[in-house]
């Protein structure tokens, strides 16, 4: 191997890449937060007694889970504006796609979690006179949270990486900047390796924290 690694180039590209990282984070965190919140309510609809809530939520969830994310993002940029008559910025389209996709996945995580809690927990609380909303908030969700933490961590990791797909919509996030730089300098090896390292540094602390939290929660029970 006589490839000369150009470390100087990495240093030189760093400011551009870090600007991309900022956009990645701006895509990542909101789409997780929006996705989780929407996913929670979706899961309530999905497990509702009313078919009028159950059927559309099931359709929505399966639509997002069973089609490629890349197509969803492109669709939100090109097709969705035709339907609603408003042009979305690439960033908004990407955020919308990621958030809605996440909501579908987290709805299923919530549903699985809530249904994994034994019926006896509902009954024990109900017998005290607690309302369903109180039971959900005080008894079911705290137990569900612990069980769902690994699944949500996974999802958060997926979304962080998935946000790189926004580069096809020319959102100036980390991957876009990386691809731009590597084609400018013809140095994909240096640039893309650096991009990968940045993704790693971005994601790893989260997984580490979640593993610690998991351990602490497990010790409590």
């Amino acid at each position: 191997m006589n490839y000369q690694f150009d470390f100087g180039l990495i240093l030189q590209s760093l400011p551009v890449l870090l600007r991309g990282l900022l956009v990645t984070i701006e895509l990542w965190i909101p789409s997780i937060l929006i996705g989780l919140t929407a996913g929670f309510f979706l899961s309530l609809a999905r497990t509702s007694k009313s078919i009028a809530l159950r059927a559309p939520s099931l359709f929505y969830i399966e639509l997002f889970r069973d089609t490629p994310v890349l197509i969803q993002l492109i669709w939100f940029f090109y097709a969705f504006p035709i339907i609603i008559g408003v042009q979305l910025s690439p960033f908004t389209a990407a955020l919308l796609g990621l958030a809605l996709n996440t909501s579908a996945y987290s709805a299923e995580i919530f549903r699985g979690g809530i249904q994994s809690i034994a019926l006896g927990q509902w009954e024990g609380a109900r017998a005290l006179g607690m309302r369903n909303s109180q039971i959900l908030r005080r008894i079911i969700l705290p137990q569900v949270f612990k069980r769902m933490l690994p699944a949500f961590t996974n999802r958060a990791i997926e979304v962080a990486k998935m946000s790189s797909l926004a580069s096809v919509l020319s959102v100036h996030e980390l991957m876009y900047q990386g691809r731009l730089l590597s084609s400018t300098y013809y140095r994909p090896l240096e640039i893309l390796t650096t991009v990968a390292v940045i993704y790693f540094i971005l994601i790893y602390p989260g997984t580490w924290l979640s593993a610690r939290l998991e351990k602490r929660l497990a010790a409590k029970a």
């Binding site: 006896g120 927990q121 009954e123 024990g124 609380a125 109900r126 017998a127 005290l128 006179g129 607690m130 309302r131 008894i139 705290p142 137990q143 612990k146 409590k220 029970a221």
Partner: peptide
Amino acid sequence: SELCLVRERVGMVFQQFNLFPH
């Protein structure tokens, strides 16, 4: 709301305890 009031007055102990593990 009515059932909650009834259950407040009529307590129940179950075969499987149904304690809150958390």
